[in-house]
Amino acid sequence: MSETRFKRMKDLPSGHLLGSGTPMCAGCGGLEALHEIYDILGEKTVFVNAAGCMTLLSVYPFTPFRGSWLYTAMASAPAGAQGVRDALDILLQKGRMAPTDDLEVVVLTGDGAAYGMGLSATSGAIERGLDFLYVCYDNEGYGNTGQQYSGATPHGARTATSTGARGYPGYKKDLFSILAAHRPAYVATAIGAEPLDLARKVEQAKGLKGPRFIIALSPCPTGWDYDPKDTVEIGRLAVRSGVWPLKEYRDGKVTHTKIPGARLPVEDYLKTQGRFAHLFTPQRNEALLGEIQGRVDAYWQAVG
């Protein structure tokens, strides 16, 4: 990571730009990340949103954003960003808009849109070299519709559509690598509970041109079944247990931005959430716990 103005916690913005009083749940980890991101991006932005929890941020006639907003649909927020960016460029080039009126185009979607329905629109936007920032808040399920499993749901998690003893049978899709394989300007994973790491990544992304992505794991008290006060702690555990590697892709290289020294057992993270309760009660599912731990270990062994 190159030079940063965010060296210590006290370098982070002290005031918050995003208004309060939104209909998000108490303790929403997605909103936590969005606050931190917005403070750095600022109000010269237009957020292009896909269907999901965050769609309810702007409910007529209110909005917490000081800048602009466009809701599109679940599948096509990156295409909406394409239309806005292209139109801004055309108007600038033809002198029909003051350069000071230019905006940073930011896509804001959940994992359901990012990992699934909207993936082809994202891939297309990268192909076209679209100059935009994509923020995915990843609450590991279709949250707005009641937390059914999505392509981002972790193995074994209980969701509204995986209620059996083994939880979700699939495996969380590696969106980071899918995006990086397109060789865009920037891809990073992040989490609101590590604000310094997140701020540096937003700063990096802001300074680049082209397609840029931040995938923020977003602890979700409602969907993950835990007390809203634990959002930050669960976020930290996700990082310290190695479940959520913090990393970035730039110039063809992947760098881990925070390598957990002594990794905590994955159990420490899983135990905090009701969606994994069936792994521990009525009796421990050693096989499944072992498999989950094994996959995390294998990941970090490969990292070296």
């Binding site: 292009v48 466009l70 599109t72 649909a73 599948a75 096509s76 990156p78 295409a79 909406g80 960003a81 394409q82 239309g83 806005v84 292209d86 139109a87 801004l88 055309i90 108007l91 029909r96 808009m97 082809s120 629109a121 891939s123 297309g124 192909e127």
Partner: peptide, 18 residues
């Protein structure tokens, strides 16, 4: 990459003033 995206982009560009 699709007409769904094409019409989204068309609407979004019109909504930006082109």
């Amino acid at each position: 990459e699709s007409e769904h995206s094409m019409i989204t982009a068309a609407g979004a560009a019109a909504a930006t003033g082109a």
